[in-house]
Design a protein around this nucleic acid. Sequence first.
DNA 1: TGTCAACACGAAAACGTTTTCGTAGCGTAT
DNA 2: ATACGCTACGAAAACGTTTTCGTGTTGACA
Lengths: 346, 346
Amino acid sequence: MKKKVTLKQIARELDVSISTVSKALRNSIEISEDTRQKVQAFAKLYNYRPNNIALSLKNRKTKTIGIIIPEIVHHFFSKVISGIEAVANQRGYNVIVGLSNESFAKEVINMEMLANGSIDGFILSIAKETQQQQDFHHFTETINQGMPIVMFDRVVNDIKCDKVIVDDSEGAKLAVNKLIACGCKNIAIVTTKDYVSVGKLRTQGYLEALEDHKIHPKASLILKVHDQLLSEDHLDSLEVEIENLFKNNKKIDGVFAVNELYAITTMKVARKLGLTIPDDLQIVGFTDGVLSKHAVPALTTVSQHGKKIGEKAAELLINNLEREDEEDIYETVVIETELIERDSTK
Amino acid sequence: MKKKVTLKQIARELDVSISTVSKALRNSIEISEDTRQKVQAFAKLYNYRPNNIALSLKNRKTKTIGIIIPEIVHHFFSKVISGIEAVANQRGYNVIVGLSNESFAKEVINMEMLANGSIDGFILSIAKETQQQQDFHHFTETINQGMPIVMFDRVVNDIKCDKVIVDDSEGAKLAVNKLIACGCKNIAIVTTKDYVSVGKLRTQGYLEALEDHKIHPKASLILKVHDQLLSEDHLDSLEVEIENLFKNNKKIDGVFAVNELYAITTMKVARKLGLTIPDDLQIVGFTDGVLSKHAVPALTTVSQHGKKIGEKAAELLINNLEREDEEDIYETVVIETELIERDSTK
DNA sequence: TGTCAACACGAAAACGTTTTCGTAGCGTAT
DNA sequence: ATACGCTACGAAAACGTTTTCGTGTTGACA
């Protein structure tokens, strides 16, 4: 087992100083052709690689990006990560991942762990619990310490940082307009409670789309699903809630669901109730994940382009990190949503 | 913007030496009660946190684990990550993720980037291309430099490291036995080419199960899908291959598919051909992902317990890292598979 | 012979810690 | 008065780099 070789060892071995070795390796003209060759040959032989940690300490930058997301077993978030990783890697950065599990405490702890020198900046999406508690001190504090943040998807407006979002309300309108265009008269929405920012926005888009078409929204057609239901265990009660929605509103002929799981579950319930899709009932979802693509019938849905979101977020962060002038002008980039038409609509 | 405060600054401010500050913060008895209080108060006020990078350099350990996986937008791998992250975090480690995208070159580059001090050890699953090329020098080299590796799922046998695998062939037998028990007489398998280690093993299990029941395997019932098909774009040709399988073997009444996508696609093709599941055709998949759970009918499948695999891998790695004695005895842990019976079998 | 520039290299500081060792100051016992 | 032992603290090294600055040697030139 040959341990990693350091400048010091090379220096000792070749009977020169550490400085000389360092310079020789970086091809400094201060060093004679002769010694340069000698040193480089030796370094190559022993497979010398500079120690990243030492470099980080010296340069006071780590070339690493910290990602904090609520969950990783989730198509959208892993897409975003793959986007971040792609541009990060290409620009010489590494990516370190922390999971909040939707918990405020874990979000804070994770950020604190990473903020003490391990990374140069954050890319994150806020935990549900944090959105609920509206406690954002950990964000402002890290920013105050000079560490930039880029938020994506679930953002909080009055924090001074770059943001990458989709136009959720616009995307929702896309979906609902499609349903209207396809002849639906009684369009229901299956959505989350309002404290989930994206849920709220999508609900708004639903309402606006209806109003644009002079359709009066009915409260009974708006199902704000009780919480924790996204955690896959509570699927049953989700089904019950949706089933009640249908039973109380026999005339529903279109459903807009604000995420994949809601959409799929709605399909399942509808089938159980004897409705055919898309003939009796049309459905549009949000998030173009693996479920939508392989569902039967395949789900018409609003794609957020998760990978693109990640790429943009990484780009913004790295640009910020490598910017010379210290002016902080923050951007909010909106990634276009796109309606992917498949077989759950006519 | 108040930058992070260091020992040196505290020392200067309080007019004591750096050593004193360090000791005071760590409650050394060398320091008088008085100064200890003073220093700690000051540190708390300015929210002092030791710099991780400096600590890493000094201790020559980073408390970070490097993960290299072929793909992250994948239910199984993200499950594994979540498992790793859970125990890593709980034991005070961070997790840094590299993606190989199934490419040999990217695998090597990623490992080199991380191996130069950024991490204490690796947890990885091998890229397809690496399996194909059978070039494993980057693994042996990092191990020779004293950096431990834990491989999971796709492993290579003759590398000196801990491994966490599922008993793929046993899992496959579980699946095929189930089909046999449910009365299937002509069981086909949809699998990968043999260089994918897990595919090969599952194919083996299929053959063994048949032989155990004195059923003579037929070559025409074994579909080794042409490559790249897992990348979601080539779905069409996957469907064609499967469709041909059915057309050439009208009597197929059971299919074992070695992954979720193959299983789902088989279902889709079967439906197109007018077969009802599970009446005309029964299907068992491998990997209990979100697709299997929400498919219609829900898919009977072999669960690998991805999260458990991740947890075990992290446990092995960290135990190794924190072991005092340097004996290298390596374990191969087999995580039990489990047959999850749902509606695609009788 | 003396001066100066160019060349080739080394010493040392710096990044932020922890830890070992040395020691100044003081009280106590002989 | 001398010796000894505490107490409380500081100096310095170490981790592995990069970079600035200083300097010894050589050769050329007047």
